[in-house]
């Protein structure tokens, strides 16, 4: 018995060593033969960017760019940030992704493009507000809409973000509070309804699974099916979204900022002073209907 056991260990060890030998040969190969290996690996990615047309090249570059990072070492601190071609000012943080939203699966996280003058603002809101907050109108459903934060990473409901609450500290110049940062809460405001005593977001994992399934099978779907499914997926989306001054107004803002953890001074800015003043300036500067993006002629 002991002998058999020994024999098994022996043979097992020998086989392991054989695997190790083969691995070593494989491991050695680039060291022995390939002084060009590294350069080629770096270049082969670049070669994708050498398509015939400018568009092809840009397309390839965009695919590549996701991996580009910039790191600055100042000795007393290190700044890690994404590399954005042509950008001069520092970002100083990694752009977080929204893993919970099903809209971003197709539309990305910089979705607004139609209304040229305000698209950056709309994208800015998309950083901390779920799409359905503005793009689903409650009056259609006759439901009482409530708002809560969800964690961008996990998609779970979370408490009011600490970073948001702490803006107040920056106002009060409490030692240790950094520059106030806006929108960087790692969370988004999303609408939901009270159901059976509990809160339920309007978006659901079911919807997300649906979209994911669609994307996975897109290649094999017929063109007719695609149109049908798109219609279905976008049901409930209102052509005319919530407008700027429905939230940024003093009397009855659509989103209850204070309940969502906004500190009083910030609430005041949002519904009363600076932001509202800004919107008024915008109305003067651009033609008024830019502020009601839904009025744009429909895309399709």
């Amino acid at each position: 018995m002991v002998k058999l056991f020994k024999a098994v260990i022996f043979k097992g060890y020998v086989v392991l060593l054989m695997i190790f030998t083969v691995w070593y040969g494989y491991f050695m190969y680039p060291l022995v033969f390939g002084f060009e290996g590294k350069e080629q690996a770096a270049v082969s990615l670049k070669e994708m960017g050498e398509g015939v047309s400018d568009k092809e090249r840009m397309f390839a570059n965009m695919i590549l760019e996701t991996s580009k990072k910039s790191r600055i070492d100042l000795d007393y601190r290190v700044i890690d940030q994404p590399y954005i071609e042509g950008r001069f000012h520092h970002i100083g943080f990694e752009m977080e992704q929204d893993n919970a939203s099903n809209c971003v699966l197709c539309h990305g996280n910089v979705p607004h493009d139609k209304s040229k003058e305000v698209r950056s603002f709309l994208n800015m809101h998309a950083f901390y507000t779920a799409c359905e907050t503005c793009h689903i109108r409650p009056e259609d459903k006759n439901e009482k809409i409530e708002f809560r934060w969800y964690d961008k990473d996990t998609g779970e409901r979370t408490e009011n973000p600490v970073a948001l609450v702490e803006i107040e500290k920056a106002y009060a110049h409490i030692e240790g509070a950094s520059y106030p940062t806006y929108g960087n809460y790692g969370a988004k405001i999303a609408p939901g309804v009270i159901e059976g005593g509990g809160f339920r977001f309007l978006h659901s994992n079911e919807d997300k699974a649906f979209v994911e399934r669609y994307l996975a099978e897109e290649k094999v779907l017929s063109q007719k099916q695609k149109s049908q499914m798109k219609k279905l997926m976008h049901s409930g989306i209102n052509k005319k979204p919530i407008e700027c001054d429905q939230c940024h107004q003093e009397k009855n803002p659509y989103i209850p900022f204070a309940e969502l953890g906004y500190p009083p001074r910030r609430v005041d800015e949002l519904i009363n002073t600076s932001v509202v003043g800004m919107i008024d300036k915008y109305k003067e500067f651009y033609i008024p209907n830019f502020l009601t993006p839904g009025d744009q002629p429909p895309e399709d």
Binding site: I84, R87, H89, G92, V110, H112, S120, G183
Partner: peptide
């Protein structure tokens, strides 16, 4: 605001955020 951004006409991502601290 960290999300102040758009995609420009050439398809480039433009981020207009200014990190004040930096």
């Amino acid at each position: 605001h960290r999300g102040l951004s758009r995609i420009d006409e050439n398809g480039e991502f433009r981020l207009f955020y200014i990190n004040q601290e930096l």
